[in-house]
């Protein structure tokens, strides 16, 4: 098994799918340059790597039209905030067309959006926009967190008959790991149980996953064991994995670097409250970014996102100190 960085894994996924299927092509701003995840593709694939003007609405819509008529475009939005520019086409054309036209058409498009937060990129370049897109039935949303997953899931996304938006996390780009081969795909809609425990379920999203694993290590030192779940896909969410875990542990902490209101953490909390209420032994805790504009100064941004300290504190608050039985007795 080769070892690649998260970014190399994204590039490898696109290259393998370009080799496998002549309908696949890549388009985006500076897609031909040796910049970011499309680096090196132009040298091998030539015209199938297409530079675009700065017209995110236009070229995202064009990719949708190409997908409706037989091709498999991968759109590189370069930074996740450009989703806002393309939003009308994503919402009205990509998400709705299969349903609205009663199955006459598929929109097999992949939109890649890299999130760069926590690095003084400031207000316009630091958003995590996936919660807004979760409210759009008709698209799938993935947020893989390891080199193996990002490679295998982008490959699944390219082969998927419906629109898939990939939220990549720039904080994970240099992370290294083993990845699968050209035929290995990781399915969309299946979560990953990263660590097995008994006392608390920690569901972590995107860049919060490594922080949750760090928190779980620290909790283990205190004698608290945690299930850590990386849903990997936000739509469709692997509800069963989360519910099964909470039915076992009775406690839920959700760590999500996106904003709090109507977010992924809110949705996961609501599902658990509706469907596993009887299993809950403590209130659900969310560890999210605040509903604030992201500030520029490192001194101001430093405390915004879920980290191991916050996740450990949230776990403590639901487990009730080091003795779960004491907490249960007080319940």
């Amino acid at each position: 098994m080769p070892e690649l960085t998260y970014r190399q894994a994204i590039t490898a996924a696109m290259a393998e799918e370009l080799r496998r299927d002549e309908r696949v092509f890549v388009m985006g701003e500076d897609a031909r340059a040796d910049l970011w995840a499309t680096s090196g593709l132009y040298a091998e694939f030539g015209d199938r790597i297409r530079d675009t003007p700065l017209s995110e609405l236009g070229f995202t819509g064009a990719a949708i039209g190409a997908a409706m008529t037989g091709l498999r475009p991968i759109v590189d939005l370069q930074i996740a905030q450009l989703v806002y520019n393309a939003f009308e086409q994503i919402a009205n054309q990509a998400a709705k067309s299969r349903y609205m036209y009663n199955g006459q058409v598929s929109v097999p498009i992949v939109i890649r959006a890299a999130m760069g937060y926590g690095g003084s990129s400031a207000a316009h370049h630091s958003d995590r926009p996936y919660p807004m897109l979760m409210n759009l039935p008709g698209i799938k949303i993935i947020c893989p967190t390891t080199p193996a997953d990002v490679k295998g899931m982008i490959k699944s996304a390219v082969r998927d008959p419906d629109p898939v938006i990939v939220f990549e996390d720039n904080n994970l780009m240099l992370q290294k790991g083993e990845v699968g081969g050209p035929e290995d795909v990781v399915p969309i809609g299946v979560g990953k149980l990263c660590r097995i425990g008994e006392d608390v379920t920690i569901v972590a999203i995107a860049g919060a996953v490594p922080r949750a694993l760090e928190a779980a290590d620290r909790l283990a030192d205190e004698g608290i064991s945690a299930d850590v779940i990386d849903p990997r896909t936000l739509v469709p969410l692997d509800r069963d994995m989360i519910l099964d875990s909470v039915r076992k542990t009775g406690r839920l902490v959700v760590a999500d670097p996106a904003n709090r209101t109507c977010g992924a953490a809110a949705e996961i909390s609501a599902i658990v409250a509706e469907e596993a209420f009887a299993a809950l032994r403590a209130p659900i805790r969310r560890v999210t970014a605040p509903d604030m504009v992201v500030p520029f100064s490192p001194a101001l941004e430093a405390g915004f996102y879920p980290d191991a300290d916050k996740i450990v504190a949230a776990a403590h608050s639901v487990v009730g100190g080091h003795d779960a039985e004491v907490f249960a007795g007080a319940h």
Partner: peptide, 27 residues
């Protein structure tokens, strides 16, 4: 829309189908 005669859809949002038309031409 009736895709069997190449009609790729109509749009309740003004101008929304224009990028789609460009994409069909790109295809």
């Amino acid at each position: 829309a009736d895709f069997s005669v190449g009609s790729l859809g109509e749009s309740g949002i003004v101008a929304s189908a224009m990028p789609v038309a460009v994409g069909a031409a790109l295809s």
